[in-house]
Simulated assay, not measured.
Amino acid sequence: MTWTESLYKLAAKLTAHKPSLYPTEELDDLTDVKITKLSVDGFEGERRSYALSVKAGLHLFNESLEPSHAISQDIDTPTGSYWHSIMHRMEGDYSNAKYWFRMAGAHPVYDDVAKEAFAYIRQTGLEDIQSAALKQQFEQWLSASGYDPVRFTDLVEYQVTKANDERGEELLKHIQWIEMRKLLRHGYAFSGGERELF
């Protein structure tokens, strides 16, 4: 099977899933093997780094942190740094995640993430969040002019380490899902993808 055929099947399966903010094990061992076997032979230069970023992202959708980290830490681009950041956020190493978000700089997907994430929160509302402190942090985050992944990481950290708010968890997982899907599409498009990935 070609890169494209295999990739579409994996992406269709994985991107429907909203990964945990703090996964404890991968979703599916066999899917991990399939991602690992996706060959980037034939990709060169910048296109190769984007193809590798797609593999790093698929591993994170499968909640496989170590394989994703092994790939993303060797991609010296803003997109590689972005996946590296998300991986550290998901493992609970929030200060390291924020460092790599700063290394990624003003990534091109931020505007699209902000538009979709802010619209989603405004549509669903924050009323059901039980933690007053978490709700206040959400409101401050929403008042920003654009997507700030460092402040989003602070929200995730507060939820995971202090609030443990059921509704807050749902909202944050959905925003992370939006972020990861946008980043995966970006990597795929710049690897030379010719049609929508999902």
Results as ranks from 00 to 15, higher is better:
E157D: 09
Y110M: 13
E127S: 11
D128H: 11
M180C: 02
W83L: 14
V40T: 15
A56L: 07
G80V: 06
L171D: 00
Y22A: 13
T77L: 05
Y22L: 09
F61H: 02
Y94M: 11
T77V: 03
Y110K: 11
Q123H: 14
F190R: 14
A104T: 09
E179N: 13
T2W: 09
Y82E: 13
D93G: 08
V40I: 14
V40L: 04
E194Q: 14
E169H: 12
K18P: 00
R122S: 12
P67R: 09
R167Y: 02
K34D: 15
D165H: 00
F43H: 08
L58Q: 08
E194G: 15
D111C: 03
E170K: 07
E66I: 12
K115N: 10
G42K: 07
Y188I: 04
F152L: 00
Y94S: 01
A97K: 03
D93Y: 04
D112Q: 11
R151F: 05
Q123L: 12
E44Y: 10
A114C: 06
Y147T: 04
W177T: 12
A144C: 09
A104D: 05
P19K: 04
Q159C: 03
G92W: 00
E5P: 08
E170W: 00
L14N: 01
L58K: 06
P108N: 08
L126K: 02
L14A: 10
E127H: 07
D41E: 15
V109L: 07
K9Q: 13
G168N: 01
K98S: 09
G193E: 04
S85D: 07
S191A: 14
E116R: 13
A11N: 11
K162D: 08
E91V: 12
D128F: 08
L30N: 15
G146F: 11
H84A: 05
G57W: 03
W83V: 08
A119N: 15
I75N: 04
L183T: 14
Q136T: 12
P67M: 12
D128G: 08
M103C: 12
A119I: 11
D128I: 05
N96E: 15
L14W: 07
Y147P: 02
H69V: 07
